[in-house]
Design a protein around this nucleic acid. Structure first.
Lengths: 223, 223
DNA sequence: ATAGGATTTGAACCATGGTTCAAACCAAGG
DNA sequence: CCTTGGTTTGAACCATGGTTCAAATCCTAT
């Protein structure tokens, strides 16, 4: 039972870390990363500044874990899409809806994706690159299978990423439209922009509203 | 001739201000606004820190003028488009190409458009809103004239703005593609996403490469 | 209960970087 | 010349905010 005890300890700590990350994430989103002080985050969780540093090495770490969270969700999203083999248009549509939801939905809606990771974020950059590669692959396959209009998948990918990432700049949970609705609207518009005109009439953005799982359990919150 | 003398004085100052703004703009773009110090800007123009404050009140002012510069270009772009009455698809295409070029082309390619203006930037926010309103109007007219698929012009506008504004995050002048090429690719993709499928085959993004004038002379660089 | 480690505190530390300022400099004009 | 006002300097000022730390507190095991 030594294991259980140790794990109980760890769980307590893990929950604390998670609550801190929640507070940090929200505050980052509300005030922006630079305008957010450690003291702000501390106040939000109801602890003191110094105590934060018992759980996280520094501010950048806080940001890094937030980004990791989001990237984790995006990862599972991609993995899930790869599992079921759908035509490129549907996969892209689902990816876009899922992406918008990952960034804007749920409690720890993370703005962090916008911030540029510091030097310590080489790992994060790599994961982000991998995600972008997945997106480009979908586009390439769409062109290959003849449903997408021929185009430079790199540029097309940036257009799509711009649209979806930009949402964190203006989307508000209490606004008139939900993240899911925004996502479907975006997906319809963006997929239609890639599809060959004769196929464009057949898309059904309503069906692209994939369920978003919480981040993978495997997300390590170990500093 | 007293006027001439006074104006000569002013011109000297104006040039100095412009060179400072150039340096600031470039450095902001390279290192980001927050990572850029006044000392960096000063070093770039070849003057000392304190001297900057003889020409500009503070750092935020520097940012404000950079944004004003870009907004000025976008303004003239819109005005020019309104002059010649084209179908909505062509106007939107030209707007997109022009926007991408405004943000990424030429010497003072300004990243500032991304940064969120502080309290002093109410004026800037208003101008930006006006620009976005113009974009939405084009979309609305496109829907009205029956060439665009029915959609929420507000959401569609955000998708477009996201794509084009995001370019400042990844576009590099020495990269493989020019701002104009990127702009045309974006325009093709984004316009096609809005057009009714039966019309989508007829678009010519090549023709949307509008000439970009320098910012309007009326741009006041008076602090 | 009590020792020992985990946790929390609050204050202080300190680098960064925006900003100020008085003195020096450098024209032109008288 | 020498005065005047626009310009430049370099150092210092100082608030902000991330970070550290020794002491206090709490929890758990023996």
């Amino acid at each position: 039972m030594v294991q259980t005890k140790a794990e109980a300890e760890t769980l307590r700590v893990l929950e604390k870390k998670r609550s801190i990350l929640d507070a940090a994430s929200k505050t980052f989103r509300e005030k922006g990363f630079h305008k957010t002080g450690m003291r702000d985050v501390a106040a939000r969780v109801g602890m003191t500044v110094g105590n934060l540093y018992y759980y996280f090495r520094n501010k950048e770490d806080l940001l890094a874990f937030c980004q990791e969270e989001t990237l984790g969700r995006l990862d599972t999203l991609v993995r899930r899409l790869d599992a079921e083999s759908l035509p490129a248009a549907d996969r892209l549509g689902r990816l876009i809806v899922g992406h918008v939801r990952c960034l804007n939905e749920g409690i720890p809606g993370t703005l962090a994706h916008l911030e540029i990771p510091g030097d310590g974020g080489a790992d994060l950059r790599a994961r982000r690159d991998r995600y972008e590669a997945s997106l480009r692959r979908i586009l390439r396959e769409g062109v290959a299978e003849g449903s997408f209009v021929p185009c430079d998948e790199k540029v097309a990918a940036m257009a799509i990423l711009g649209s979806v990432n930009w949402t964190v700049r203006w989307f508000r949970p209490d606004g008139p439209a939900s993240a899911d609705e925004i996502g479907r609207a975006f997906a319809g518009q963006l997929v239609r922009g890639l599809l060959k005109p004769e196929l464009a009439a057949g898309i059904r953005p309503e069906s692209w509203s994939a369920p978003i799982g919480p981040g993978p359990e495997s997300t390590e919150v170990t500093s």
